[in-house]
Design a protein around this nucleic acid. Structure first.
Lengths: 347, 347
DNA sequence: TTGTAGGCGTTATCAA
DNA sequence: TTGATAACGCCTACAA
């Protein structure tokens, strides 16, 4: 038997198609009796509304795009997806993941997007837009919400963690523990794209200065390219540790841009038979699973919650309401674990 | 300006709507000249086909469902999603993730699914179907492909790793290293659902027997409930280690059902100042990131590749072709790292 | 290779 | 509260 259509249900229930549509969507202005009749008929015919037909007729696609930077199978991105999904699914929206890993893909994505009215809104994670992108963005005609983007420019709403405040608390911790010289180790920073985490580098500089560290007391060491494989990350970490330890007076307090990156550095340090917090203190950022595994002190953020919040803002925007808070900044809090402690004597 | 429709393009290009449709979909039987004209007109009008309208008219949704067990933000599930996405996206298909964590949700998912013709195919990851589900499944009328499912029953095609062979190689390793007594530690096994990884438990029993281990030489220790949070996993691991070490002659060779679970156990063991491979050997399963972090010997599988393969089978099925291999079993190979070695003396 | 025209299954507007 | 009916934007025989 062919699938039932709305008119089959209408016939079975003895009402019009319009009434079936109203009843099944839980719309107001349907008498309880009628609604019950319709629901029964639909049930009997094993009928549900076709999403495609609804979409076409209403102009609403019931889909929201989630654009993340980098692969989907990272802790952060997957968690954001989970968070977005959790609030969107009950509302009947599909979450459609998409990702870009470099500028070229990003441009292509936006070039194709406006021509493609196949989503009602878009959530953009972890990177910023320059003017060019900004223009295309506004041409989209759909709500755009940012998640952990370096700035709020171009977004109808946004949610993100307060990187600067978090980094400051981390620096303060190291200072409290007596570390005279501190370092920040970070991943490659591409010139053509601004990532959410990139702001942490600048934040460290600022925080360190404010905490009283002189220029000679802070060292910044970055990777010179993106590390896509574990083996490459490993090599990069080795290089960074080499530079770290060959400073004439090496820093004893180390902060990393992300837990993953920090973990790689930490492992290399241990391979030199240096131990934390005996010989140095090290802390990551994110509170990703790897930080638990290694008992790494870190700065906690909750990407699932961020995803939830972003999705809620999308929902509000879609309803034509203003989100409770348009641009929201949530704290990332210090999680003390085993890799930080009093600075070694004599340093 | 309102969005252009296909008839605007037709008018601009001086052809019929049908020709525009054919040209834009890359269909055959369109002269290069006409195609060029159409493409130009579409470009000028910033036009692309509406997915919803196409779907409605053609009956094809260009969407495939990916049903995973457990949250999306696990290494395995996120990687499968990535893998599926990678091959489906270029073909114009959206990947729509969905997940269920228990039997009730699973039932609900399938109860709603047939009434909801909003996907062309479905990929089901990591669990099996009993007869009841099987029936609903075939009523779906769309291709169903399995990924790491315990059996191939009910699937039009499937891909998975050979758990039994992998477990066997692990057991052989422990035997070669001289471990007289071996243990298998595993997560909770619910009674109402069969997971892909559950088969590893039985596989261990079989492999151990075949390798010559007597009943007294193998110990199986499982969790008695699912551990959803890190803290709970931690507690469970503590209980397991307690049982492990309180055996009158405790096993020195340990295999775990998954890397994550194994890592939790390993950490607890270390907290007792036991070291691998000095005091015991331990190996995980999956080659998840945590196994690298801890230098854990493990059995490698590649969920991204599994996702790729599953998606390719979907594509073939959707084209009405038979996949190159309908039911495929790929090996999971032993990765030697630092946590396995010769059994301690005198054991 | 291209055009014609009916239909895909809803939603939304307007009356009743 | 309910019913007619005209969109919604494209696909696909079928015909030319």
């Amino acid at each position: 038997m062919a699938r039932a259509t709305i008119s089959d249900v209408a016939a079975a229930a003895g009402v019009s198609q319009a009434t079936v549509s109203r009843a099944l969507r839980g719309s107001a202005n349907v008498s309880p009796a009628t609604r019950a009749k319709v629901e029964q008929a639909a049930e009997a015919l094993n009928f549900t509304l076709s999403k495609s037909a609804s979409t076409l007729a209403s102009g609403r696609t019931m889909r929201v795009l989630l654009l993340v930077s980098g692969p989907l199978n990272t802790w952060f991105n997957a968690s954001v997806l989970q968070g977005v999904y959790d609030v969107l699914a009950p509302e009947g929206y599909d979450t459609i993941p998409a990702f870009v890993t470099n500028r070229e893909q990003l441009d292509r994505f936006f070039r194709d997007l406006p021509r493609d009215r196949n989503a009602d809104a878009i959530i953009i994670t972890s990177f910023e837009f320059d003017t060019a992108l900004h223009d295309q963005l506004s041409a989209l005609g759909m709500p755009v919400v940012g998640l952990n983007s370096p700035s709020t420019a171009g977004f109808d709403a946004s949610i993100g963690i307060d990187n600067a405040a978090a980094i400051t608390s981390g620096v303060q911790l190291l200072r409290s523990l007596g570390h005279r010289r501190i370092a920040f180790v970070h991943d490659y920073i591409p010139h053509d794209m601004v990532y959410g985490t990139s702001t942490r580098v600048a934040a460290f500089r600022t925080a360190a200065a404010q905490a009283g560290y002189g220029d000679d007391d802070i060292v910044m060491i970055g990777a010179d390219h993106h590390d896509t494989t574990p083996a490459m990350l490993d090599a990069t970490a080795a290089g960074i540790v080499a530079r770290l330890l060959s400073c004439e007076q090496h820093p004893t307090g180390i902060m990393g841009e992300t837990d993953e990156f920090t973990a790689a550095v930490y492992k290399k340090l241990r391979r030199q038979h240096l131990a934390a917090p005996r010989d140095f203190s090290i802390m990551g950022f994110d509170d990703a699973p790897v930080s638990r595994t290694l008992d790494l002190t870190t700065l906690h953020q909750n990407p699932v919650a961020l995803g939830n919040a972003a999705a809620r803002k999308v929902l509000a925007l879609l309803r034509g309401e203003a989100p409770e808070r348009t641009h929201e900044l949530v704290p990332a809090t210090l999680v003390l674990r085993e890799t930080t402690g009093r600075a070694p004597n004599g340093r």
